[in-house]
């Protein structure tokens, strides 16, 4: 495997061919904020928080899917990037119904952490206050769509790791929603193995364990490939068929 040398924030790094900018950054302790990215799941480049500048191009590139090339000069913390990251968190905060004070993951929430990191003292966009639903039909878990940030980690972990594909996204644009099966109650799903991976990977309080109250739910998000229980059951799932949503 070849090695490429590139510069990131004025420091030289060498990367294995095939590694992404984000991987090199993480391996070397350079912090780039992320939300949709989770190690072990296919990267989708959707949240745009990890965008970086590459010298010579006016465009911005997601660090999670972009691979360094020989001699590339990457910047991860410019004023422009900081401003855009703050606006992205601002947009997210305005999109859902995020009431930290009454949330199970208050204090252990990736959206909160991001808000602190970008210094979000208030949201300039009007809050949308969407009418979202909560589904507590599952015997162990709850999905509260009010708090969903549509990172699709749950969709990907359920498809790519568990192999059950209970979750998917319905509708489009601002009306996107995470749904189970035919937009039917989660508790009725034959496909769900109740493995709880989706709850673990959810960065916010949208997927939660029953019985947890405000600030109680700490999630173990470091990715562990829990034994696959569903993959063998469903013949439509193939390893090649990555979710990518």
């Amino acid at each position: 495997m070849g090695v490429v040398t590139f510069t990131m924030d004025d420091v030289q790094y060498s990367a294995n061919e095939g590694d992404t900018i984000l991987k090199v950054a993480r391996d070397n302790g350079v912090h780039i904020p992320t939300l949709c990215f989770l190690e072990g799941l296919s990267p989708v480049g959707a949240c745009r928080l990890c965008l970086v500048e590459i010298e010579g191009s006016p465009k911005l590139f997601p660090a999670c899917t972009t691979k360094p090339a020989e001699g590339m000069i990457v910047r991860t913390q410019t004023e422009r990037l900081k401003k855009y990251r703050k606006m992205i968190v601002e947009l997210l905060a305005s999109e859902g119904n995020h009431q930290c004070a009454v949330c199970v993951v208050n204090g252990h929430c990736e959206l909160q952490d991001l808000a602190y990191e970008v210094g979000l003292d208030h949201v300039r966009f009007p809050y949308l206050y969407p009418a979202k639903t909560l589904d507590a039909s599952h015997k162990e878990f709850v999905i509260d769509r009010n708090r969903c940030v549509l990172c699709t980690r749950c969709v990907r972990v359920c498809h790519e790791v568990e192999g059950a594909h209970v979750w998917d996204i319905a509708n489009r644009g601002i009306n996107c929603e995470i749904i189970a099966d035919m937009n039917t109650p989660w508790g009725e799903s034959d496909l769900c193995t109740s493995c709880g991976k989706c709850v673990r990977v959810c960065p916010v309080g949208a997927l939660l364990e029953k019985g947890a109250t405000v600030g109680e739910l700490k999630k173990e998000r470091g990715f562990v490939k829990v034994i696959v229980t569903a993959r063998s059951k469903h013949e439509w799932i193939t390893v090649e068929d990555h979710e990518e949503e």
Partner: peptide, 9 residues
């Protein structure tokens, strides 16, 4: 042979 949620999606 598709998961229902994908068809709905």
């Amino acid at each position: 042979k598709l998961p229902p949620s994908r068809v709905y999606g």
